[in-house]
């Protein structure tokens, strides 16, 4: 029993009723009509309808790349060991420092040139060749299996009869 009384207003009395079970039942009825309720497989009588065309996508999910040796690591380690020997005196290790910087700058320039020219497509061929996911998508895009152009592409189904 709850009582509300505020100043000059007359007090109101009412009882609270638990309605959750009723609301849940109503929700069950509603969603079952839309086919969202969980129905066991044995009771499913709905025929399979092909809404999205059954074809492979034109891309592969991007996964982790291979663990490969990073660029210029050996040169960097050589330089660091040299600096440690001479107590951080850079004038004594000019050869190692230049070697390291030439290596990395050459790599940066090469990647910039490749980026301007387009995607690099140096893919190996043979029986036991491992390809990365990016390389596989490059191949599949040249020979598409479905008409899909985008990743989330939904073809409009024919007019429904029901």
């Amino acid at each position: 029993m709850y009582v509300i009384s505020k100043g000059f207003l007359p007090s109101v009395q009412f009882n609270m009723v638990n309605l959750t079970s009723h609301v849940l039942k109503a929700a069950d009825c509603r969603y079952s009509s839309l086919g969202r309720a969980v129905i066991p497989n044995s009771k499913q009588t709905v025929a399979f309808r092909e809404r999205i065309p059954l074809a492979l996508r034109n891309h592969v999910k991007i996964s982790g790349t291979f663990k490969q040796q990073k660029v210029c690591v050996n040169e960097m380690v050589e330089m660091m060991s040299c600096l440690q020997k001479v107590d951080q005196n850079e004038a004594m290790c000019q050869k190692e420092i230049q070697n390291f910087q030439k290596c990395y700058n050459g790599f940066v320039n090469a990647t910039n040139v490749a980026r301007k020219a387009g995607k690099p497509k140096d893919i190996q061929t043979g029986n036991n060749v491992k390809l990365s996911s990016i390389q596989v998508t490059d191949i599949i895009r040249d020979f598409p299996t479905s008409k899909r152009t985008r990743v989330f592409y939904y073809e409009k189904p024919p007019n429904r009869t029901y």
Partner: peptide, 13 residues
Amino acid sequence: HHRICDQNRAYAN
């Protein structure tokens, strides 16, 4: 800074 680099050279990869 260079000394910290040298200490962590094992993680260069």
